[in-house]
Computed example of a mutant assay.
Amino acid sequence: MTDILIVTHVDYCPPGHLARVLDVQQRAFTVVRADLGELEAVDLDRPKAVAVMGGPMSVNDPLPWIGAEIAALRHFIRRDIPVIGHCLGGQLLAKALGASVHRMPYTEIGWQPLSRRDLPERSPWLAHAPEEFPVFQWHSDTFGLPEGARWLLSSPWCPNQGFSWGDKVLALQGHPELDEELVRLWTTDWAHLLDETQPSQQGRPYMLQDLESRVAAQLRVAEGIYRHWLGLAFGD
């Protein structure tokens, strides 16, 4: 067990670029699969920083491990350690903080421009980010804002794209952790789920246009978020 815990839920939603950031900084981390019950073996008082990744399931699905993960997140929140949630992870954090998570009338898929809602007073989580930047999306559920949360981000198809709660909790609806390899993998393996007749979805050719520059812009924002997360945990 290490001081950094990454919780995943399926093999094709890995830590992605977050793992590369940690490797470059030579910070050891532990990855567990909550859906396989691996979170049960974790000493919840050990981690100093936690990241929760995505997955295709809903927080409202009747799966026994979901309740256990929400309880673990509440424990981390009580410990006042920095926690970041990505997509499903953000929805799990919202649920842990008492907010609703519900199905949207459509699925948001593709590159969406995220607009900051923390201006003119900038959130420290986004101090490095431009007023608008692209983030890759693939979700049908969305979270409400917990009581006391600060609304940070929105997109044209999903108003609640991100919130912070207190100083150390950040919930994101999108996937800033995705690199080029993962975008190509998802748009290939999940192509049968795409429906370009829905205006909230983009076709695979469009999603792969200017991929290098889109991913680069996304990862610049992601790296700033991860630096702040690590700074909160380790003071550097």
Rank of each mutant, 00 (worst) to 15 (best):
L5V: 14
I6H: 02
I6D: 01
I6S: 07
V7T: 03
D11K: 13
Y12W: 14
Y12F: 15
C13Y: 01
P15R: 11
P15W: 10
G16C: 00
H17Q: 13
H17G: 02
H17A: 15
L18V: 15
A19M: 04
L22K: 06
L22F: 11
L22R: 00
V24G: 03
R27N: 03
F29R: 10
T30G: 00
T30K: 14
T30V: 12
T30C: 11
V31F: 09
V31A: 04
V32Q: 03
R33Y: 06
D35H: 08
L36G: 01
L36W: 04
L36Y: 02
G37I: 04
A41L: 03
V42F: 03
V42W: 07
D43C: 11
L44Q: 14
R46G: 00
K48G: 12
A49L: 11
V52T: 10
M53E: 10
M53T: 06
G54L: 00
G54V: 00
G54C: 01
G55K: 01
G55A: 03
P56F: 09
P56Y: 08
P56C: 09
P56H: 07
M57S: 07
M57E: 08
S58G: 14
S58C: 07
V59I: 15
V59F: 13
V59N: 08
V59R: 10
N60F: 06
L63W: 15
P64C: 11
P64T: 07
W65M: 06
I66T: 10
I66H: 11
I66L: 11
G67R: 12
E69H: 04
E69D: 12
L73I: 10
F76I: 01
F76N: 00
I77V: 15
I77C: 13
R78V: 07
R79V: 12
R79F: 09
R79I: 03
R79G: 02
D80A: 09
P82L: 05
V83E: 04
H86D: 03
H86N: 10
H86P: 01
C87P: 01
C87R: 02
L88V: 07
G89N: 01
G89E: 11
G90F: 06
G90I: 04
Q91V: 06
Q91C: 02
L93Q: 02
L93N: 00
A96D: 06
G98R: 02
S100P: 01
H102K: 13
H102V: 15
M104S: 11
M104V: 05
I109L: 14
Q112T: 08
Q112Y: 14
Q112R: 08
L114Y: 12
L114S: 03
S115V: 09
R116L: 13
R117L: 12
R117I: 00
D118L: 04
S123R: 05
S123V: 05
P124Q: 09
P124V: 14
W125C: 07
L126F: 15
A127F: 12
H128Y: 09
A129W: 08
A129N: 02
A129D: 03
P130W: 11
P130S: 09
E131R: 14
E132S: 15
F133I: 09
V135R: 00
V135T: 05
F136A: 01
F136K: 03
F136Q: 00
Q137E: 12
W138Y: 05
W138I: 02
H139N: 13
S140T: 04
S140V: 08
S140D: 09
D141T: 12
T142P: 05
E147S: 13
G148W: 12
G148I: 08
A149Q: 08
R150T: 10
W151R: 03
W151T: 05
